Computed example of a mutant assay.
Amino acid sequence: MNEIEIKRPASPPRRPIARGSSFYLAMRILPPERRRAMYEVYAFCRAVDDIADDGGPRAARIAMLDRWRGDLARLYAGQGTTPLTEGLADPVAKFGLKQEDFLAVIAGMEMDVKRNIQAPDWEALDLYCDRVASAVGRLSVRIFGIDDEKGRLLSHHLGRALQMTNILRDLDQDGAMGRLYLPKEVLANAGIADRDVGKVLANPRLAEACGALAVRARRHFAEASAVMKRCDRKSVRSPRIMASVYRALLEKLVKRGWTAPRVDVRPSKLQFLWAVLLYGIV
């Protein structure tokens, strides 16, 4: 009888950063040490996001997220790194990245894993945005060198603005996975009572619901801009680029409209180049 070999699951591979991606272009202007730290945070975010989005049994994906929690606990307890956390050790030590923010990102991904989010209320959506976007901002602002008070406020507003823009951009992509992030309040105000995702996305009154979320996103962009005006200019070069490009993306989505079939809209490379020229050179 042959001996059965039991192998520990391999560490999830790190997905390389696309050189033409919005993140790559916005972070490329950072000094090398800060840039490397941001790329490690990005790699973490992509890894846990892939767990949430790539399918498979829910229990297995929750176990993978729990593995991340355990490995982060080891790192912060000074018990060494694992293949998952070895790239994070240096940024955590140099920039004082907080364990609670990494855990918040994981908790946000877990919200997607446990069940398909469909028409949450505003409070639940705000919590989701805080975890999957603003928590990433709280990690990032420490690397950028923004002081804690302004950094947390910027993370709050810019994270929500970016995530709401992504929600509006990815309506059909999320719908194909059975997800609908538009709050139930805006659907009700638009007179959309159906909760079937496909029917909601085909509803002729969808524009009213999406418009309400766009208004909220614009407010967060405006608040983020006000915070960045009070920060050292060098420290907010990257977030200014992201805000500029995604605010333009939001307006392109609004201009395109919400009637199905919806043409895919993505950030413009020319917009990025302009933003880099405008904010990336100090």
Rank of each mutant, 00 (worst) to 15 (best):
A10W: 00
A10M: 00
P12N: 03
P16Y: 12
P16C: 14
A18L: 15
R19W: 12
S21G: 11
F23Q: 01
Y24D: 14
P32Y: 14
R34T: 07
M38I: 05
M38C: 04
Y42G: 04
A43L: 06
R46Q: 15
A52V: 00
A52H: 02
D54A: 10
G56Y: 14
R58S: 09
A60M: 10
L65G: 08
W68Y: 12
R69H: 05
G70N: 11
A73N: 13
Y76N: 05
A77Y: 08
G80Y: 15
L84T: 00
T85M: 11
T85D: 12
V92R: 09
K94T: 11
F95Y: 14
E100T: 14
E100A: 15
F102I: 01
A107S: 13
G108A: 06
V113G: 05
V113Y: 03
R115D: 00
I117D: 01
P120C: 09
D121E: 04
D126P: 01
C129I: 07
S134K: 08
V136N: 07
R138K: 10
V141K: 00
R142I: 02
G145S: 05
G145K: 01
D147A: 12
D147Y: 11
E149H: 11
L154C: 14
L158S: 08
I167L: 10
L168K: 01
L168N: 02
A176F: 08
G178T: 02
Y181S: 06
L182E: 05
K184C: 12
E185H: 06
L187R: 01
I192Y: 07
A193V: 08
D196A: 03
G198R: 12
L201F: 10
E208V: 15
C210I: 03
G211Y: 05
V215W: 01
V215E: 12
V215D: 05
R218T: 11
R219H: 11
H220A: 14
H220N: 07
A222M: 10
C231H: 13
R233Y: 11
S235V: 04
S235K: 13
R237M: 14
S238E: 13
I241S: 08
I241Q: 12
A243W: 00
A243E: 12
S244T: 08
S244N: 06
Y246G: 00
L250C: 10
E251A: 14
L253H: 10
R256N: 08
R262E: 03
V265H: 12
S268N: 13
S268V: 07
K269M: 10
K269D: 05
L270N: 08
L277G: 05
L278C: 14
Y279N: 09
